[in-house]
Amino acid sequence: MTIFIFKAVLIFIIFLISLGIAAYSTYAERKVAAFLQDRIGPDRAGPFGLLQPLADGVKMFLKEEIIPTVSDKWLFILGPCLFMVTALMTSAVIPWGMPLEIGGKIYKLQVADLNIGILYILGVVSLGVYGIMIGGWSSNNKFALLGAIRASSQMISYELAMGMSVIAIILISNGSLSLTAIVESQKGLNWNVFYQPVAFLIFIICAFAECNRTPFDLPESESELIGGYHTEYSSMKLGLYLFAEYINMFISSAVISCLFFGGYNFPGLDYLNTVLPVNLVSLISIGILFVKIFFFIFFFMWIRWTIPRFRYDQLMRLGWQILMPLSIINVLVTGAVLTFFNK
């Protein structure tokens, strides 16, 4: 029974952390944007503007809730809910750190250690399209519909290359699909990024596309589609869409850290294990993972304020004609090297 309580507490904490990080990502986004443009950014609410997300949240809640009369009411409400649910569900298979020891029992810091962990993430991400599509269609607005169609075709296209690049990772980490096993196979500085730079490049480009982040933010490109799929949304329903996007960013940063940068591993972890108590090492490993995650969140923002948006045909060409063949070749080469040189 204690395992259930532990898991429930863990899920609760992960939800809180996801939402908190999403909230502070909005603040970080504005701060990073400002700093990269030689500005200061929000600094009025609280010290250094740290209460800005709170102010934004209150503003979101107090805005008028508008459901267009020509829209399909139920689907209009369902859209943001689905998007949020799928965004939060992805965090279930990520190993957040070394096991904790509470009352003589060992608890894994992972909600579910599925043996298909990475496929689970791909599956849930592929379901995330529905939130956008339904929201865009039910708004009964041509810009929303165009945004939704762009979002879905973009996500489907980049999912393929993403899956193919993951196959290479699975090949070099003993053929296991479980995220725990993939992380465990990267002890020390034995990170996958050093063995699979091409897969990393493909994966991170696809992650940008899946999160609808610049340079691939065509579904909501404000200069052509007003707000894209959330043009008609207001109040907290819009808030859910924006929030879920930041959660997606957080989760994809976590997945990138786990797949390519060793997750909670760092050089010297084994040594620390022998000298420090288990729980302290566990906390340190969690901290290390979060440092990596924060770096990638920063990287997402850094890219956003550096590279301009792609044109839609360029996006499709990059996905299908460059990343897709490249990832297949990568898998072939990895397989060949493993077969002939790694006996």
């Binding site: 592929s126 379901l127 599509m133 879905s152 489907i156 999912e159």
Partner: peptide, 15 residues
């Protein structure tokens, strides 16, 4: 099943 049917084919249908 989830990825192929729910994630890909149904998206095309919805499309």
């Amino acid at each position: 099943h989830l990825i192929v049917y729910a994630g890909a084919i149904m998206v095309l249908m919805l499309f």
